[in-house]
Simulated scan of single mutants.
Amino acid sequence: MTTGRAAGRTSGTRRRGVLRRAVDGVVTALVRRGSGPRGTVLLTVAGRTSGQPRTTPVTLVERDGTRWLVAPYGPVGWVANVRAAGVVDVRRGRAVQRLAVEEVDAAVGAPVLRQYLQEVAVVRRVFDVAPTDPVEAFVPLVATHPVFRLRPV
């Protein structure tokens, strides 16, 4: 069952508005201090053209002992950087981990994407499915909302 949102809302990328940038700034400051929303970390990855570090707050999901990175707003800049780099640093407070990143196919990513929507309510508005929909409804969405498996380097 879908939520009745307009078709196509999940395709393409989304630009962050002024409010989203302000919220990201507050979340970034909190996560740097070791607090902030549960599961939220600072993702740092080398820019694909500049090589300069780029940092953004993201929420990770844990499933079956594995940590997962989901791109709820589609293939935005950090996604292209992650694909190019293959490794990222995640930070919460003073703890920093270097992780290898592997993009997964739709069959693997669909249950992770569904769990992500169940746990991260703020992004639900950009999806054409509800968190309670069957996993099969999430399979086509992995093409526009990439899912990455994270492993220690």
Rank of each mutant, 00 (worst) to 15 (best):
T2Q: 10
T2H: 05
T3A: 11
A6P: 10
A7E: 14
A7P: 11
G8P: 03
G8S: 12
R9C: 05
S11A: 12
G12Y: 06
T13I: 14
R14I: 05
G17C: 09
V18M: 07
V18R: 15
R20T: 13
A22S: 12
V23Y: 11
D24L: 05
D24R: 06
G25W: 06
V27W: 07
V27D: 03
V27Y: 03
A29W: 14
A29E: 09
A29Y: 06
A29H: 09
L30P: 00
L30K: 01
V31A: 01
R32A: 06
R32Y: 01
G36R: 02
G36N: 04
G36C: 08
P37V: 05
R38W: 09
R38D: 13
T40M: 11
V41C: 05
L42I: 10
T44Q: 01
V45F: 01
G47D: 06
T49L: 08
T49V: 14
T49A: 12
S50I: 07
G51Y: 11
Q52G: 00
Q52M: 12
T56Y: 04
P57C: 00
R63T: 03
D64I: 01
T66W: 01
L69F: 07
L69H: 08
P72C: 07
Y73E: 13
Y73D: 05
P75G: 00
P75K: 14
P75R: 15
G77N: 10
V79R: 04
V79T: 08
R83C: 03
R83F: 00
R83S: 00
A85H: 09
A85S: 15
G86T: 07
V87C: 07
V88K: 01
V88C: 03
V90C: 04
V90D: 07
R91Q: 15
R91E: 14
R94K: 12
R94G: 09
A95E: 14
V96S: 09
V96Y: 07
Q97M: 12
R98W: 11
L99F: 04
A100S: 15
V101I: 10
V101N: 02
E103H: 02
D105Y: 00
V108P: 01
V108C: 05
G109F: 02
G109P: 04
A110G: 07
A110E: 06
P111C: 10
V112M: 02
L113G: 04
R114C: 04
L117S: 04
V120L: 06
A121Q: 15
A121D: 13
V122Q: 11
V123L: 00
V123A: 12
R125G: 14
R125C: 00
V126D: 15
F127C: 02
F127M: 05
F127A: 01
V129S: 01
A130K: 08
A130T: 15
P131T: 09
P131I: 09
P131M: 07
P134E: 13
V135L: 09
A137L: 08
F138S: 03
V139P: 03
V139Q: 10
P140W: 09
L141W: 01
L141K: 05
A143F: 03
T144I: 00
T144V: 15
P146M: 05
V147S: 04
R149P: 04
L150E: 02
P152C: 11
